[in-house]
């Protein structure tokens, strides 16, 4: 039986402004098991990044967690004080962000930025922390780490910086690594190096990864399970294998159809109509209904809940998921 590491229940993170309430994260249930990679995939504004910032209690103003619990090994993080969270961040849960160019402090050496993370959580001397930081740099495949540790971020390339960011995140051996679009800003050849590195390190350090991305290709290659988010909700959740073979939710299908395929010839893409709704929009029915090719009256009237399909590990939020799978075969399964 898989051991639960992180359990999110009914999480709602809202932006309360004068204009109204932005339901950025609107009722998320999610479990991350020890040692696995869970992908959260969705387009910009779907709430995937806010979900991850909610886990660390780092939601920016005017955002606020208004409901739900986030349990790490059974311990609810939502009720923790700022001080208690500081002991968890970077120690039990680490996070890496999208932009390697801006996520490192430009005036502090990379070695020190790793060392300070270690010293924030472990009672060791400056010297020991420095030695450990060099070890970390070596671990993430940075050549001549002794010299690199003394350099400042501007002296490193984008790929190198992302390796430093990873070294920093892993320095305290976290149980969970949240990776928010860690490769989006990188060139493809560097992206594949970084993904490979993350996979290797995950195995070596036996940690769970919550992989947040807009790129379905990256998900297919690096995640065990995947949750698809749309407008602050999870619309479909399954093992990567099953989800890509036979997606049930029309949004997931739409996403897959929108991507130009490298391994087949297509005259025309099949895009979804319309665009992502603002989190300030009020919905009485399904949030995807007005873009959905299968939508019927019920979709505009009632809000579908996440229901199990065949077994508990496959969940989908759609009244018509049976029809969508019996429709035309999803074109991405063909091989060239």
């Amino acid at each position: 039986m898989k051991e639960t590491l992180l359990e999110i229940e009914g999480l709602k993170t809202h932006f309360i402004t004068k204009k109204g309430t932005g339901r950025v994260v609107d009722g998320i249930d999610l479990t991350v098991y020890k040692g696995e990679t869970l992908g959260i995939v969705g387009e910009s504004g779907c709430g995937k990044s806010m979900t991850s910032l909610s886990i660390l209690q780092l939601v920016p103003e005017p955002g606020k967690i208004v409901a739900g619990s986030i349990k790490l090994n059974g311990d609810d993080l939502v009720t923790k004080t700022e001080k208690q969270m500081q002991a968890i961040r970077g120690n039990h849960i680490s996070m890496i962000f999208q932009e390697p160019m801006t996520s490192l402090n430009p005036v502090i050496t990379v070695g020190e930025q790793i060392a300070e993370t270690i010293r924030a959580h472990q009672p060791i001397s400056r010297k020991e922390a420095r030695i450990k930081s060099i070890e970390m740099l070596r671990l993430v495949g940075i050549p001549s780490p002794e010299e690199r540790a003394k350099q400042e971020p501007y002296q490193l390339s984008g790929g190198m910086r992302q390796r430093v960011v990873i070294a920093m995140a892993l320095a305290c051996n976290p149980e969970l690594l949240i990776a928010d679009e860690p490769t989006t800003a990188l060139d493809v050849t560097i992206q594949s190096q970084i993904i490979k590195l993350m996979k290797d390190l995950q195995k070596e350090l036996n940690m769970a990864v919550l992989f947040i991305t807009h790129d379905l290709g990256v998900v297919a290659e690096s995640c065990d399970r995947v949750a698809v988010m749309y407008a602050g909700e999870i619309v479909e959740k399954s093992t990567t294998e099953e989800l890509f073979r036979k997606p049930k939710h029309p949004y997931t299908k739409g996403l897959l159809d929108s991507i130009p395929k490298i391994n087949e010839v297509q005259e025309e893409l099949t895009p979804m109509k319309g665009s992502i709704p603002s989190p300030f929009t009020e919905h009485s029915g399904c949030k995807f209904a007005d873009r959905c090719p299968l939508a019927t009256d019920i979709c505009f009237e009632q809000h579908p809940s996440l229901v199990a399909y065949e077994n508990d590990s496959y969940q989908v939020r759609c009244f018509h998921y049976n029809e969508s799978t019996s429709g035309k075969d999803v074109g991405h399964a063909k091989q060239s």
Binding site: S157, G159, M160, V188, T189, I190, Q191, S192, Q193, I195, K196, D215, L216, G217, V218, V219, A220, E221, S222, T240, E241, F244, R245, L256, I259, K261, I262, N263, H332, A333, Q335
Partner: peptide, 19 residues
Amino acid sequence: AIPIPDVNVKRTQIDITGD
């Protein structure tokens, strides 16, 4: 190096190292 959103495709990856 392009990740393909398809679990059926197994790519033969040519690793190019460095920057």
